[in-house]
Design a protein around this nucleic acid. Structure first.
Length: 712
DNA sequence: GCGATCAGGT
DNA sequence: CACACCTGATCGC
């Protein structure tokens, strides 16, 4: 829950998401989204009075937020004071002090936040620098890189401060399955149940808050079943949502709510009161969306978990995971960061420990230490007394971090100078290669991750070296890019992957699947060519989650629930299982795996806002797939591919060790990653050594490839 | 009587 | 697990 006070240090004349106390004097108000914890004071009499005596004071928000807000009669008095700003459209705003007449101009840009309908981040640009307020956000890895307005040309804007949603900024939430993974799992469960008979009903036990709409829409679109909700007048001007929800209780999917709804449910009664239809009793299961994350190991996790005879939990998160937050922040690389939220059980200090290394203020402070090598060691030793690192070059994980930004900065600068002389036509090309670099960088970072996680175990390190290299090099460049780019950043995909709520509801995986299949990486063959599911039966077949196909999955059919008492905590490998199976027969049947979605990224598609394809978790998903493959003894094929599976497994397992994550990032922002374009090689220690020496001496280093453009 | 705040529940 | 919200009790205006 937000504990942001409402004011930005740089622009105290505006108030965002808080409307009480000192915010009553703001010259302009901003609302990032329509959740109550961001609306404190918004309907208080004090603010109401202020509006009545002011002509100028406005509330700025997205068109969807305006609509949702004004549908609530309690906020009707705002009607003449709300200005809806189009998303991704920079707008100049004059902040006038009505008593003194003092004026300050500021430019604001709304960026999609992927949190709930209408949710946005605010990018402020003015005399005191560029500031990003994220509100609440869920952005997959690499999505910041795809936001054009966070860039100036091909470079990230110089951002002074980020006010960040740190809800899950705790290694505990290292990984949260992507929206697609979660959606897919829920979809399969809902379909498998509702297809048993028309009396088989699913109740989605959702909290009373905006944010589940895209789930309703996708379920309705895929299954042709509208979702029963208490109220839908707020969507009256949003046909994409309106079409998929209903107030007619005679439907198989319900998301209605009443205070006594849990008790209802126990009696096979829906919150709306339905218990039977045409005299036939209903068979109701509940699915409770809740945040689950992948911790140190991935094998225990599934997007669907059965918690009782007819109750399930489904993974669902409105907020970015720890790794997504770090990816976002490290890409933006602001001078300062301020957490908007204190994770439960966490402290500000702890959060800042995670975030600071990704900011320039911290790095800059550290910088002087790295100029003269002699003193560097001493200072370094003193400051990091709790470590045993006393050699700059052996301890690059910790010590290199603060040094890098300067390098990057200088290199970027010189690069960009050269670039500015180029014809305009070259810019795209360069952008392209820059993005490609990023892709590979992040790709590499994921493996580095593993290396780091093993750094107290030499043997594992070596093994990883072996494992990683073939994995990268065996894949043709295109395939490898295809496979993982989605999770990082892909230029072609561009806007198409930025969650845009207007487009959110058109997320269409089926459309893409046919194209995806052929492009699947060779690893897909690893699981053998036979699917345990028959391809030929199409949809109904592919959506059943039946225990006959797997010893691990629990039946969803009614017979299956008999053995539940002994399986209360059974982890359902549903989506993953399906992924595994789809993977194993990818060359034929229709594929709706998450990984397949990412295939799109390899294509030269134009930015297309009509599709929403967050691609953040592709890698992990792939790992799950491999895991399941393995767990089912599916790897009948020997040879490279099989080994590969195990390698991936190892890698991902290790990468989930949260306390090593910090180091991963220090590594991923080190210059090791910068030259990692296709075909590039990891610098040898001796080369690095001399490179560092040059840098420490302030010499220029000429680079062939554009550096990563993280920090301006 | 209204609103703010807290504790508790889901 | 921890999402955002509701309810009820208490207190101050």
């Amino acid at each position: 829950m937000s504990r942001f006070g409402g004011q930005l240090r740089e622009y105290p004349a505006v108030s965002i998401d808080r409307f009480d106390r000192h915010n009553l004097r703001a010259r302009a108000y901003f609302l990032s989204h329509c959740h109550k914890d961001h609306m404190k004071g918004l309907r208080a009499p004090a603010l109401k009075r202020r509006l009545e005596s002011s002509l100028k004071v406005k509330l700025y928000c997205s068109p969807v937020t305006k609509e949702l807000l004004l549908t609530n009669w309690k906020y009707k008095f705002w009607e003449n004071h709300i200005v809806a700003l189009e998303v991704e459209t920079p707008t100049q705003i004059s902040l006038v002090d009505e008593t003194s007449g003092e004026k300050e101009d500021i430019e604001v840009t709304l960026l999609p936040a992927g949190h709930c309908p209408g949710s946005v981040m605010f990018l402020f640009e003015g005399g005191n620098g560029t500031v990003l307020y994220t509100g609440d956000f869920r952005l997959a890895k690499g999505e910041a890189a795809r936001m054009e307005l966070l860039h100036s040309g091909s470079r990230v804007k110089d951002i002074q401060s980020v006010y960040l949603d740190t809800t899950f900024c705790d290694p505990k939430f290292y990984h949260i399955p992507s929206r697609e993974e979660c959606l897919k799992g829920i979809l399969e469960l809902v379909q498998s149940w509702t297809s048993l008979s028309r009396y088989h009903i699913v109740w989605l036990n959702c909290k009373a808050a905006y944010g589940y709409e895209y789930l309703f829409i996708n379920l309705s679109e895929e299954l042709g079943i509208k979702v029963h909700v208490n109220k839908l007048d707020m969507f009256k001007n949003m046909p994409e949502i309106l079409y998929h929800v209903t107030t007619d209780r005679h439907t198989q999917i319900h998301a209605c709510r009443y205070p006594w709804d849990d008790d209802c449910f126990r009696g096979n009664r829906l919150p709306c009161g339905m218990t039977c239809q045409n005299g036939t009793p209903l068979h109701v299961i509940s699915i409770k969306p809740s945040t689950m994350w992948f911790g140190e190991r991935i094998k225990k996790t599934s997007v669907i978990v059965r918690t009782g005879e007819s109750t399930y939990r489904a993974c669902f998160s409105f907020h970015s995971s720890y790794s997504e937050i770090k990816d976002f922040l490290s890409y933006i690389c602001p001078v300062n960061v301020y957490p908007n939220v204190l994770p439960v059980g966490g402290t500000e200090d702890k959060v800042m420990e995670t975030l600071k290394p990704l900011c320039r203020s911290y790095r800059r402070n550290m910088e002087p230490r790295y100029k003269p090598l002699g003193t560097l060691k001493r200072v370094h030793k003193r400051d990091l007394s709790d470590t045993d690192e006393d050699d700059l070059f052996d301890s690059e994980l910790t010590s290199a971090r603060p040094k890098i930004p300067k390098q990057e900065k200088e290199l970027s600068k010189s690069f960009s100078t050269g670039q500015s002389e180029n014809a305009e036509g070259n810019i795209n090309e360069r952008t392209e290669s820059y993005k490609t670099t990023t892709n590979y960088t992040l790709l590499k970072a994921d493996f580095m991750d593993c290396e780091e996680s093993n750094d107290d175990d030499e043997d594992d390190d070596e093994e990883l070296e072996k494992n990683t290299v073939p994995f990268l090099s065996n894949e043709p460049a295109a395939t490898s890019t295809t496979n993982f780019n989605g999770a990082t950043s892909d230029h072609q995909e561009s806007n198409a992957s930025v969650p845009c709520w207007d487009a959110f509801f058109k997320c269409n995986k089926l459309e893409e699947s046919s194209e995806n299949e052929e492009n699947f990486p060779s690893s897909a063959d690893a699981g053998g060519s036979q699917s345990l599911f028959s391809d030929s039966d199409g949809v109904s077949d592919s959506t059943h989650i039946s225990s006959q196909n797997s010893s691990q999955s629990t039946h969803i059919s009614e017979q299956g629930s008999q053995d539940l008492d002994s399986q209360m905590d059974t982890v359902l490998i549903t989506s993953q299982e399906r992924n595994a199976l789809d993977f194993s027969c990818i060359s034929k049947g229709r594929s709706r795996t998450v990984a397949s979605v990412s295939q799109e990224t390899a294509k030269d598609t134009q930015p297309d806002n009509s599709k929403w394809k967050p691609l953040g978790q592709t890698q992990s998903c792939a790992c799950d797939v491999f895991y399941d493959l393995k767990s089912k003894d599916c790897e009948k094929n020997e040879g490279a591919s099989t080994t590969h599976i195990h390698d991936v497994l190892e890698v991902s397992d290790n990468s989930r060790t949260p306390d090593l994550e910090l180091r991963r990032d220090s590594q991923s922002s080190s210059d090791f990653e910068i030259p990692l374009t296709p075909g590039a090689e990891v610098p040898q220690p001796d080369k690095l050594h001399s490179l560092y020496k040059k840098l420490a001496a302030g010499e220029n280093i000429v680079r062939k490839k554009p550096p990563e453009d993280k920090c301006n």
